[in-house]
């Protein structure tokens, strides 16, 4: 594990390499070998290095979906993603959902509250990110499409049905806004 031992290989590695991430519209530059290590996952970097603890680490094995964030608009598992491989990527996390001007909740967040779509709340940030990606690409989803889109986010409290209701309601709210 000697640092720099392999620097010569085709210039694949350079000292002071920076990982540039756009997170919720803000650019972060993290120095490799200092703020980010090759083995750090995106979930770890977001939470422990950048303080964006809204993204949760559940199983830490890509099974439960609690760590879901959007990368270039698609839901991905931040616990299975290496930060070094995110250079130049656009990341959205739960922290980016509040309206930055008004501080108001996103319609999906409102709908989750109104529908009782969470209990313990641990899966909720990941759920909401999956729901956001769905409604972005499909503003008028059927129940089937909602179930499919949420099938990578486990919840042990709610039995999912209040979550489906919330997403239906959120879709309605968002359609009303445009």
């Amino acid at each position: 594990m000697d640092e720099g031992k392999n620097d010569l290989i085709n210039g694949a590695r350079m000292r002071m390499q920076k990982i540039k991430l756009t997170i919720n519209g803000k650019l972060y530059e993290l120095i490799l070998g200092y703020e980010v290590q090759p083995w750090h996952t995106l979930a770890f970097t977001l939470r422990e290095k950048l303080g964006l603890t809204g993204t949760k680490i559940g199983c830490d094995r890509g099974e439960c979906g609690a760590c879901t964030v959007l990368m270039d608009g698609r839901p991905i598992l931040s616990c299975l993603t290496l930060t070094v491989e995110c250079d130049g990527k656009n990341i959205e996390t739960i922290e980016g959902l509040l309206n930055s001007k008004t501080g108001k909740l996103h319609p999906i967040q409102e709908a989750f509250i109104e529908s009782g779509a969470f209990q313990c709340g641990f899966c909720t940030p990941g759920m909401i990110m999956s729901a956001k990606a769905l409604l972005q690409r499909n503003p008028n989803p059927t129940l089937e499409e909602i179930r499919e889109a949420m099938s990578g986010n486990l919840c042990r409290c709610t039995g999912y049905i209040p979550i489906f209701n919330a997403i239906m309601k959120a879709a309605e709210k968002m359609r009303g806004m445009t």
Binding site: R47, T53, G54, K56, E95, L105, F112, I113, F118, I128
Partner: peptide, 23 residues
């Protein structure tokens, strides 16, 4: 009345501090 969970705001914004969120 169907009053939503009193800590709703914290839970839907990711601001509810779970143990792992303590740094």
């Amino acid at each position: 009345k169907p009053i939503p969970c009193v800590n709703s705001y914290l839970k839907v914004t990711g601001k509810a501090a779970f143990t792992d969120d303590i740094i």
